[in-house]
Simulated assay, not measured.
Amino acid sequence: MEIQEKIKQIENTLKDKRVIIAFSGGSDSTLVAKIASKVSEDAIAVTVDTGTLPWDVIKKAKDVASKIGIQHEIVKENFLKHEKFKENSYSRCFFCKDRMYTLIESISKDKRFDIIVDGTNITDILEDRPGIIANYKRRVKSPLLEAKMTEDDVIEYLQRENIKYSKNTTCLATRIKGPITTKKLNRISYAENLIKECAGLELVRVRDFNKTAIIQVENTSKILDMNLLEYIEAKLKTAGFKRVYVDIGGYHRKRGKLIDSQNGGGAILELPYPIDLEKTCANFDEYTLDDILTVKIDSSIVKISEDGKIIFNNGKDVEDILLEVLPSIRRLEKLD
């Protein structure tokens, strides 16, 4: 399916409806907001300021919403007042999303909006994102996912249409190992801003593992200068880090691995989370469910197991089958 066909499908999902967009100003929510601003009966972009975002996220979200021409509302709540968030267990991501949607739902009910939508795209399904379980619980729609928009599709369309978006919207809590504190958030924010300014980089992550700073950047070569590294180390130690390391592999996301079969007959995709087979099978027309879920996509047979493995036979192109299968996957609601 061509990108323009996917955009048309998104337009049909949002057309003539009163829509609230969970809005960060990042590429995905920006695209959804842009389309909603053109085709929806009414649309509002809502950004939840959790108190754990990079310092410039809210300002950039305002700027992006203004350029799109969509009404923008900011809801503030300090998530550090919630113990389930502060303890930073595996369920933190779910709790964060669930609380955000609770706050957005209150606006939706007050102003009588039809649907809440987010910017989840099909590439996101390859990652371990427990927060998506909140989408199921709150019945939040994901137009990009339903239209099979990939991350590359989104960026290509935004660039082609010259639509500006923010490249750094992820919560600082994702960088922390162990309990989340204001002190940790502040030193991470300081460290990332310092490195951005010194190296002229947009995408910087500084992970805080028990006062050990792990630096990940989009282009590692830009910080591989001994004078610069010594300066960064000194500044980060002054901020409270005891050790400073650079991840020479750079910033990367942990995604499911697609492994080609040795005999050339198909492939295996290993997702980094368990799959709820019963809820997944409800999204397919032709299937059998025993210990594994077997579905038919045109002439191809796909086998899905609870441990996250998706096995493709030697039918049509695996990438095409993936685009058909991934929007229907429902992860197991296991948060411990």
Results as ranks from 00 to 15, higher is better:
S91V: 01
L228P: 06
I329K: 05
I223G: 04
P274M: 07
L144K: 01
C171H: 10
T169R: 02
E5Y: 01
M149N: 03
E151V: 01
N135C: 12
K17Y: 00
S261I: 00
I321E: 04
K257N: 13
I268C: 11
K279T: 02
L203M: 06
S89G: 11
I70Q: 10
G26W: 10
E324F: 00
K316E: 14
S106H: 04
V19S: 03
I68A: 08
N168T: 11
N88M: 06
F23V: 08
N162C: 04
L289H: 05
R18Y: 03
K177M: 06
G315Y: 01
P274L: 06
T13G: 00
E286T: 15
T288K: 06
D290T: 13
L236S: 07
T212K: 15
I248S: 00
G266K: 03
T52R: 03
M149V: 02
I133W: 04
L158Y: 05
T150G: 05
L293D: 04
L228F: 03
C281R: 15
K148M: 13
K164W: 09
G51A: 08
E77D: 14
I297A: 03
K222M: 12
E197G: 05
R175V: 00
N186R: 15
Q9K: 12
I195W: 13
K164Q: 14
T182M: 12
I214P: 02
K177Y: 06
N227P: 00
I58D: 05
I232H: 01
R112I: 08
I74D: 11
V318H: 01
K60S: 12
W55F: 05
N121Q: 00
I275H: 03
A234M: 12
A33H: 07
I35N: 12
R18W: 00
Y287Q: 05
P272L: 09
E41F: 12
K17P: 01
K141C: 00
R99L: 15
D320E: 13
C198A: 15
I311G: 00
N168D: 11
P143Q: 05
K296V: 05
Y165A: 09
L289R: 07
E105D: 14
G25H: 06
E161T: 10
K8P: 00
S328D: 08
I297N: 04
I304S: 09
D247F: 02
K211E: 13
V117D: 09
K86V: 11
K59C: 04
K211I: 00
I122L: 07
K235P: 11
T288R: 12
I133K: 11
A33T: 08
K148F: 00
N121K: 01
D114P: 05
G119E: 09
V64L: 06
N12Y: 04
D276P: 12
F209N: 15
K164C: 04
D276R: 12
N135E: 14
K6D: 06
E83V: 11
I329L: 05
I44D: 06
V318N: 01
Y190S: 06
V246A: 04
F113Y: 15
L271V: 05
V302D: 07
P54D: 07
E11L: 05
D98V: 10
V75W: 08
D320V: 02
I10M: 11
S27R: 07
A173Y: 02
R99I: 15
G308F: 02
